[in-house]
Design a binder for these strands. Structure first.
Lengths: 131, 131
DNA sequence: CCATAAGTTCGATGGTTGTCAAACTTTGAT
DNA sequence: ATCAAAGTTTGACAACCATCGAACTTATGG
């Protein structure tokens, strides 16, 4: 029946609000490949995803740890649906604070190197230009 | 006299070429505030900067360590001028591999939060929308 | 009521990393 | 030749972090 229990654990973990999101925390979160994979899968998904539906190379307890780091960094929003915990990417909010960052990171992580990235502008003569 | 010694140490440390730059290494490098400060100062500077000219909160030997990490990640280029070691941001090359990433990171690190970042798009009804 | 499913919490562990001090190297100037 | 300036190298140390297994909590289904 789900009587919306008014007391006890609300089963809603603490999230930082937008102003509290720092670049330091975001980078600390995104430096881990597993967490970057989570964000990538959320970015590519149409809707929210529950923890168990992710394709991750680690055990459940480790995954829990990663989700918590992402949540505390302000990158994802978590809420319960029955026994499942859903995860939503805080896309618009992060874009509002760090414009372009999320998109650039996900794009960079897609493994798809932009074509013709062989030689960049040669620039003025510098000692290392020869090596 | 500077006879351009043809043998011995060339005094040019190894740099990864563009194709070898990985997002993982770039993020590992940029997760450290000191290294992000170095990149920020290079980004804002008109030309290259020698190691001693940076404003850093660590000892010389630690700074050397940070410069090496940045170099091995492919973020900076280093070359000698006399006893000074110059540092150049590999701006164009990084942009070619990870478009927009460097700019987004430096902008995000400038502490200048974009105005009116209070409330982002409210989005559809989700349990956490109330909290 | 009992079993199962979905996550969480709690140690423990092994590896990585940022930091410094001290000794060293190389270059340029006196 | 001698000295100072600018970095580097090495070794040591403390702190942090990702990972796992085992025990626990909460909700759903029969």
């Amino acid at each position: 029946m789900a009587v919306a229990r008014s007391s006890g654990q609300e089963r809603v973990p603490p999230h930082p609000d937008v102003q509290a999101i720092t670049l330091q925390k975001v980078l600390e979160a995104l430096v881990d490949p597993v967490r970057r994979s989570i964000v990538g899968q959320l970015y590519a998904a149409s809707g929210d995803i529950n923890c168990g539906a992710f394709d991750l190379p680690v055990e459940k307890s480790t995954a829990t740890h990663h989700f918590r780091v992402l949540r505390e960094a302000g990158l994802i929003r978590q809420y319960y649906v029955g026994t499942s915990r859903m995860n939503a990417l805080r896309h618009a909010e992060i874009d509002a604070v760090f414009p372009g960052l999320l998109g650039a990171l996900v794009t960079a992580g897609e493994g798809s190197r932009p074509a013709g990235a062989g030689q960049a502008a040669p620039g003025p003569d510098r000692p290392w230009a020869g090596a």
